[in-house]
Amino acid sequence: MQSKQILAQNQRIERITATTLVVGVDIAKERHVAQAMNFRGIVLTSRALAFANTRAEFEQFVARLRDIQMAHGMTDVVVGMESTGHYWFALAHWLQDQGITVVIVNPATTKRNKENRDNSPSKSDPKDAIVIAEVVTRGYYTLYERSEWQFHQLRVLVASRERWVQERSRARNRIIRWVDIWFPELTQVFPDLFTDRALATLTHFPTPAQVRVLTPDTMVDVWRRYMARAAGARGLRCAQALQEAAARSIGETVGLDDARWELQHLLVSYRHAYQVVEETDTRLEALLAKIPCAPLLRSVGIPTSETAAILAFGGDLRQLAHGDQLLRKAGLNLAERTSGKYKGHIKLAKRG
């Protein structure tokens, strides 16, 4: 380990003193389980503390911790939990509002240490809570601090954008599959099926049978509803090429009514996802304008969506002393395996 990492680890260990009550919480959707121990790893609870994800039981949980503190003469409380899913947000924020220190433990660290105490691969909520608390006493944790409201909003928008981009990709792929089955020659006329002209075609006359009964002028009139320059020589050439493709089409001809019904719903899904992504990008632009370190990232050519993702999950870059800290947080730092004369390959750690 590098000297700076060793120093940081020592500081985290020194943070846990003889007067510190260390609490590990195994997070769940409905009921959490906690165990308490001292800095030496001695469990101070006769049985696990189970409490529901409600304010009333949060208050009972803290009251029980205060009783344990008084019984053992402790003046400080540190609560550790894994940052998995979203179920820990409510508890972590509520504890911070009560003035209790909250730390985050990497689930990979918990998994590697779960057999230390009993040499058994068994798993249970009380055991997991003990393992989390034990990991905290050895300094393997990260202090949890709420980010400023701009970065919180960024995380919400970036996560939402990612989901809608996936929805848009799914709709695109299903539309492409539909075309491959019912009108495979359409891609010869429109290599990109998601231009305005191609989408208008898919909306109003997506099958070869529909195209065959239309004239080029009729097609151009439909395209005019969706684009400013639908006519002209290019528009007529597209219409004629579309008629020729329909005349020689080998697409499926059975079940066209249901196929058209399916396509219309796919197009609605695609357009909705596309619109949401565009709206999200607009909101990201406005939010990034309020973040001081955003212009620095954008000045080197990083697009809006990538800039938002870096700041959403990297936090305020002004708090970092070196760029390597951001790489380590993202799991992009280098890891090397050496032993004696053996020199292993250097690769990405992939552990944020």
Rank of each mutant, 00 (worst) to 15 (best):
5 Q>S: 14
5 Q>F: 10
6 I>P: 06
8 A>C: 07
8 A>W: 09
10 N>M: 08
10 N>H: 11
10 N>R: 15
14 E>P: 09
14 E>C: 08
15 R>I: 00
18 A>K: 15
20 T>I: 03
20 T>N: 07
23 V>W: 02
23 V>H: 01
25 V>D: 04
31 R>Q: 14
32 H>E: 05
33 V>G: 07
35 Q>I: 00
36 A>N: 01
36 A>S: 05
42 I>K: 13
42 I>F: 11
44 L>Q: 11
48 A>C: 03
56 A>C: 08
57 E>C: 02
60 Q>M: 12
61 F>P: 00
70 M>W: 13
72 H>D: 03
75 T>R: 11
75 T>G: 14
75 T>D: 15
78 V>H: 04
80 G>Q: 02
81 M>F: 06
86 H>W: 03
86 H>D: 06
87 Y>P: 03
92 A>P: 01
93 H>A: 10
100 I>N: 03
108 A>P: 03
112 R>A: 15
115 E>N: 08
116 N>G: 04
117 R>C: 07
117 R>L: 11
118 D>T: 15
120 S>L: 09
124 S>T: 10
127 K>G: 02
129 A>P: 05
130 I>K: 05
130 I>V: 15
131 V>D: 00
131 V>E: 00
135 V>H: 02
142 T>F: 14
143 L>T: 13
145 E>N: 13
147 S>N: 09
147 S>E: 15
148 E>W: 09
149 W>F: 13
152 H>T: 14
156 V>M: 12
157 L>G: 03
157 L>S: 01
161 R>M: 05
166 Q>M: 08
166 Q>D: 14
167 E>R: 04
168 R>M: 07
172 R>L: 04
174 R>G: 01
175 I>H: 01
176 I>H: 13
177 R>T: 12
177 R>F: 02
177 R>A: 15
178 W>Y: 05
179 V>H: 00
181 I>L: 15
183 F>R: 03
184 P>M: 06
186 L>P: 00
194 F>T: 08
196 D>H: 13
197 R>L: 12
203 T>M: 02
204 H>T: 10
206 P>N: 11
211 V>S: 02
215 T>K: 15
216 P>W: 04
218 T>M: 13
224 R>Q: 08
228 A>V: 15
231 A>F: 07
238 C>D: 11
241 A>H: 10
244 E>M: 13
248 R>C: 05
250 I>K: 06
254 V>M: 08
254 V>D: 11
255 G>E: 09
260 R>S: 00
262 E>V: 13
266 L>D: 04
267 L>N: 01
268 V>A: 14
270 Y>R: 12
270 Y>M: 03
271 R>H: 08
279 E>Y: 05
279 E>W: 00
285 E>S: 09
287 L>P: 01
291 I>G: 04
292 P>V: 07
293 C>F: 00
293 C>N: 02
295 P>M: 00
295 P>G: 09
305 S>M: 12
307 T>P: 06
308 A>W: 04
310 I>N: 01
312 A>R: 06
312 A>M: 00
313 F>L: 01
315 G>N: 08
319 Q>N: 08
324 D>T: 10
326 L>R: 07
327 L>M: 03
327 L>T: 04
337 R>D: 12
337 R>I: 13
337 R>Y: 07
340 G>M: 04
341 K>M: 11
341 K>Q: 12
342 Y>F: 12
343 K>T: 14
349 A>V: 13
351 R>F: 09
352 G>N: 02
